[in-house]
């Protein structure tokens, strides 16, 4: 028996629990999902094979396309605000303070369960009874239907999640910034470069692999927006916040169109896969300028 085959056997022993988990919780459900997506299945009947019918119906379903547009709008709002704010916070921490207290404070919103965050903000932003509107009307500004106006509902949901996640994202970026050798900043400072110039020419380029990872993870996370909407707006007003996951959920658990919902989920998988590939390529994530 060679040394390497012995190693391999040990490796299998260690990998087995993970593989079992992977098969039971990921591989099998995915395979089932793919199968259901080509069936007519209401949970209470036996699935019947319908070929590509579900996909054809999806292509012509204005509600599905609208939910994708609504989700994309949310993603742009959420990732946009979150990335800029988090980058700013991380840079401030990196160059000004390394206080543990500040870092801990940033993490607090992220530690609160999503549903609690959503409930909290639902009360704060309520048009009649909310504290925010109380302050607005006290200041002589009109009340705003943050979660009930078709214009404001989506930005409000994005705001809630930006509040919840920015601190966490900022910490990830900050950790990335700590990898950048300090001597680069020292020599730049000696050469007379200001903070903004150093941020643009040192921090941003060297942070790129971390930034790419953070963006990919938060892009996928943002596309999965569900709980905030499920708690605060339920897709209202008139579908303005019916994001694609809520749409899939409604198809599956309100109308019991399991096959159709599975097909919609598969389309989402493909879209996310493509977006991730494009993003990784654009940001050349695997190569660092540090090397």
């Amino acid at each position: 028996m060679t040394r390497s085959s012995d190693d391999r056997r040990v490796a299998w022993v260690f990998l087995l629990p993970v593989l079992v988990g992977f098969t039971v919780f990921y591989l099998y459900p995915t395979a089932r999902g793919i199968w259901y997506s080509v069936t007519d299945y209401s949970l209470l009947n036996t699935p019947t094979f319908v070929g590509a019918d579900n996909y054809a119906d999806l292509a012509g379903d204005p509600q599905f396309w609208r939910s994708l547009r609504v989700t994309a709008y949310y993603v742009v709002l959420n990732i946009g605000s979150q990335a800029v704010l988090a980058l700013g916070l991380a840079a401030l921490m990196h160059r000004l303070t390394r206080s543990v207290v500040v870092r801990a404070m940033l993490l607090v919103p992220w530690l609160v369960p999503n549903v609690t965050v959503a409930l909290l903000w639902m009360w704060l932003l309520d048009a009649n009874l909310g504290l925010v509107n109380h302050l607005l009307s006290g200041a002589g500004l009109g009340r705003q239907g943050f979660l009930t106006s078709p214009v404001w509902a989506m930005p409000s949901v994005a705001l809630v999640n930006t509040w919840a996640y920015t601190g966490y994202t900022a910490l990830l970026l900050y950790a990335g910034m700590l990898q950048i050798p300090a001597h680069l900043y020292e020599s730049a400072a000696l050469d007379g470069a200001g903070e903004l110039r150093m941020f643009r020419l040192i921090t941003l380029p060297l942070l790129r692999p971390v930034l790419a990872l953070v963006l990919v993870v938060s892009l996928i996370g943002s596309f999965q927006i569900f709980d905030t909407v499920a708690v605060t707006t339920l897709g209202n007003p008139a579908g303005a916040t019916r994001v694609v996951y809520l749409y899939i959920y409604e198809q599956a658990f309100r109308y019991f169109h399991m096959g159709y919902a599975a097909a919609a989920a598969m389309v989402l998988v493909v879209i996310l896969g493509l977006l991730t590939a494009v993003q990784l390529r654009l940001l050349r994530a695997s190569r660092s300028d540090l090397a």
């Binding site: 309520d126 009649n128 009874l129 009340r143 979660l147 009930t148 078709p150 707006t233």
Partner: peptide, 15 residues
């Protein structure tokens, strides 16, 4: 009656 986009999401009972 309150405008739809400025009504409470907490339900009529609460209002």
């Amino acid at each position: 009656a309150p405008r739809f986009d400025k009504q409470s999401t907490l339900g009529r009972d609460a209002v």
